[in-house]
Computed example of a mutant assay.
Amino acid sequence: MPVACLVAGAYVARLAVVFTLAWTHSVQKSEWQEDWRATPDGLVLDEVRVEGSGAGMEPPEGAVREGRFYVAHPGLPPQREVLLRRSGATADWRVCTEGGCRPMGALLPSDLPPVDADPVRLTLCD
């Protein structure tokens, strides 16, 4: 069974088969969550949840309001790689699994050179 990995420079952090990427928009302060799944064909985006709209945080097409989130199922083809930018000017990505959520930085070595800390590639592990 494939597993997802975060790749930063030469460092690789194994994630899980199913995980959530979450972040808070720096201006709008709206929460965005994406449920991903590792498959033999690539990374599949199963569901997107957006807390609000505005400042570039528009809910995806076809989203339906469920509680405090707009929920959508994008139907994108499997992705071989997703680039995750880390400017340092905003809160870090959160990576969530059954064990809870952690900042992406907690999964990477603290002495990682800045040039290797951005971007981080989300991909299937070898």
Rank of each mutant, 00 (worst) to 15 (best):
P74K: 04
V120M: 10
G62R: 07
E34W: 13
P77R: 03
P40K: 03
T39Q: 02
R86C: 03
F69V: 10
E81P: 05
V64L: 15
A8G: 06
G62P: 08
Y11R: 03
A13N: 12
G88F: 09
A16E: 12
D118F: 10
R94C: 04
C96F: 06
E51K: 07
L124D: 02
L76C: 00
V7T: 13
L84V: 08
V7S: 07
Y11A: 15
G52N: 08
S26H: 03
D116T: 06
E51Y: 05
E98K: 13
V64Y: 02
S26M: 11
M57S: 04
L45T: 05
D111Q: 07
A72W: 05
L76I: 05
T97V: 14
D92Q: 14
A22V: 07
Q28H: 15
D111T: 07
H73C: 14
V82H: 00
S53T: 12
A91K: 14
E98I: 13
C125M: 14
R65C: 14
D126A: 15
R37T: 12
E51S: 08
G75R: 04
P78G: 05
A89K: 13
L122A: 00
V115H: 14
A63K: 01
V71Y: 00
A38R: 01
P60S: 06
K29G: 04
R80L: 11
V7W: 06
G54M: 12
P40Y: 02
